[in-house]
């Protein structure tokens, strides 16, 4: 039952993402222009830590906790460059 509810949640998230990706016209008013990205380009705004530090951190925590995930997908980011 629990696995089914998780699967349903993931499906809803996927549909929400697809709807967002397909709604280009409505999204445009939310876009941040390139000249507005100065703050976002700073290293302190990166959701992912530097890869080597992130690997070390996950190496420790994933071996001390029973859960995994949540650190994002490598290559994801704010697209601010």
């Amino acid at each position: 039952m629990r696995c089914r509810s998780i699967s349903r949640l993931l499906a809803i998230l996927a549909l929400a993402g697809a709807a967002l990706a397909g709604g280009g016209c409505s999204v445009s008013k939310w876009t941040v222009r390139p000249h507005q990205r100065e703050l976002l380009a700073d290293r302190i705004m990166q959701l992912d830590a530097e890869a080597q530090e992130r690997a070390a951190e996950e190496h420790i925590l994933s071996n001390r906790e029973g859960a995994v995930g949540g650190s994002g997908t490598s290559g994801g980011g704010c697209g601010c460059n």
């Binding site: 703050l39 976002l40 995994v68």
Partner: peptide, 22 residues
């Protein structure tokens, strides 16, 4: 498998959502 979606919401705010299946 790890999908994720990042969104630059404002010049000061970035958000990200995603999941992990292992």
């Amino acid at each position: 498998v790890e999908p994720s979606l990042s969104w630059t919401m404002t010049p000061r705010l970035v958000v990200q959502g995603g999941g992990t299946i292992q």
